[in-house]
Simulated scan of single mutants.
Amino acid sequence: MTVYIRDTHPPRGFARILWRLPLWLYRLHLGWLLQSRFLLLTHIGRKSGLPRTTVLEVIRADKTAGKYTVFSGWRKQSDWVKNVEKTPQVKIQIGNHSFHAQTTRPAPEEAEALLLAYAARYPHLLRLVLRLLGYQTDGTEEDLRAIAHHSIMVTFEVLPPGTGGNV
């Protein structure tokens, strides 16, 4: 049974440096090393109106449909989530390829299916990440469905060329 055991917050100090390592790879033009497992998100700050960047792990990449789905570990506490809710037009970079995209939220049933598929591919990694995010879970399908309903997922849908956004 899933138990949310503690509120967690984005890391600080040395842990923040480790979590931001993929961002530095992108800044050093080495994003191609991450392939399609991570994407660089450029979004507009909801208060400042300035471009902001973060790197997110992709839990599903549908390259033919141009859809990339990510999971927000810190739910609504994540600044990027608040920012894309206000301004859903973003820019994403996967490896060396950049695209303008529109954000959407998957339906609850789709979110469940996405998390279950991710758990099937990376069971040990998912358990570790969930523990870091404050969950105590036995990894059952029922637990993962509950986590999917409690969490936030965002899908980035690539826009056709020439229909770029404001990022």
Rank of each mutant, 00 (worst) to 15 (best):
W24I: 09
L25E: 10
L25R: 11
Y26I: 10
R27Y: 05
L28C: 13
H29M: 13
H29F: 14
L30D: 06
L30M: 15
G31S: 08
G31K: 07
W32M: 00
L33G: 11
L34Q: 08
L34E: 10
L34Y: 05
Q35G: 06
Q35S: 12
Q35W: 11
S36D: 10
S36W: 00
R37Q: 11
R37M: 06
R37E: 09
F38D: 01
F38G: 02
L39F: 05
L39S: 05
L39K: 02
L40G: 05
L40D: 01
T42A: 14
H43Q: 12
I44D: 03
I44E: 10
G45R: 06
R46K: 15
R46W: 11
K47H: 13
K47V: 14
K47S: 12
S48L: 08
S48V: 05
P51E: 00
R52K: 15
T53C: 07
T54S: 13
T54Y: 05
V55G: 10
V55K: 08
L56P: 02
E57T: 07
E57A: 13
V58C: 05
I59M: 14
R60A: 10
A61W: 06
A61H: 08
D62K: 00
D62C: 00
K63F: 03
T64P: 00
T64C: 03
T64M: 05
G66R: 02
Y68H: 05
T69A: 01
V70H: 08
F71V: 04
F71G: 04
F71D: 02
S72P: 05
S72C: 14
